[in-house]
Computed example of a mutant assay.
Amino acid sequence: MTQRGTVRWDGDVALDAMRQGAALGVRLAAEHVLTESRRRVPIEEATLERSGVATVDEANLTAAVSYDTPYAVRQHEELQYRHDAGRTAKYLERPLIEEADTATAIIAAQVRRALR
């Protein structure tokens, strides 16, 4: 017994949904890295911590996490500075590396969700 069926494939709709899911995933992944970074950022008056932002370029599916104070780079790079417990130099670099798998999983989950 042979069964026949028809499958309608709308590739443009699928690609659009995938791109929208990826864009949301990139945003959520960047926010995740920012959150983890804020847990390590050196804190004196919390100005540096509050200056952290995650920005997303949805057209290129890229994101950036940054801190905007005159001393942000110096605090990040100076390994000899002393910080409170749990606060450290490389407060952005280390979470980015350590959370790479989680960030990838966040993006993948949003793409899968968009394709349902």
Rank of each mutant, 00 (worst) to 15 (best):
A105K: 14
H32Y: 07
A109H: 11
H32E: 07
R74K: 07
T62R: 12
A114H: 08
T102F: 04
R19Q: 14
R50K: 15
H76G: 09
Q3Y: 09
V41H: 01
R74I: 03
G11R: 12
Y91L: 03
A23R: 09
I43Q: 09
A64P: 07
T35I: 11
L48N: 08
G21T: 04
Y91G: 00
Y81T: 11
A109W: 12
H76M: 14
T102V: 08
M1R: 11
V65N: 10
D84Q: 10
E78L: 14
V111S: 12
K90H: 11
G86V: 02
G5T: 08
S51P: 02
E99L: 02
A46G: 12
L48D: 11
V33K: 13
D12Q: 08
R50Y: 12
D16W: 04
G52E: 00
A22L: 09
T69P: 07
D57V: 11
G11N: 03
R116N: 00
L61Q: 11
A17C: 07
D68Q: 15
A109G: 14
L92C: 06
G25H: 10
M18A: 13
T104C: 05
K90Q: 11
V53D: 06
T2H: 08
L34R: 15
G25I: 08
R50N: 15
D101N: 05
A46N: 06
S51Q: 11
L15A: 06
H32T: 05
M18I: 11
D16Y: 07
A23F: 11
N60E: 15
E45V: 13
D10R: 10
P42V: 11
E36C: 12
R38H: 06
V73Y: 06
I43T: 15
L92E: 05
R38N: 10
T104E: 14
Q20H: 03
D68L: 15
L115G: 09
V111G: 09
A17I: 04
Y71D: 08
T47N: 11
V26E: 06
G21N: 04
E93F: 10
L34F: 01
L48A: 13
T69E: 07
D12V: 10
V53I: 01
P42E: 08
T6C: 07
T6L: 06
E45H: 14
G11H: 03
A109Y: 02
E58M: 02
R50D: 08
R116F: 00
D10A: 13
W9G: 05
A114D: 02
G25W: 02
Y91A: 00
G11Q: 12
A59H: 05
A64S: 13
A17N: 14
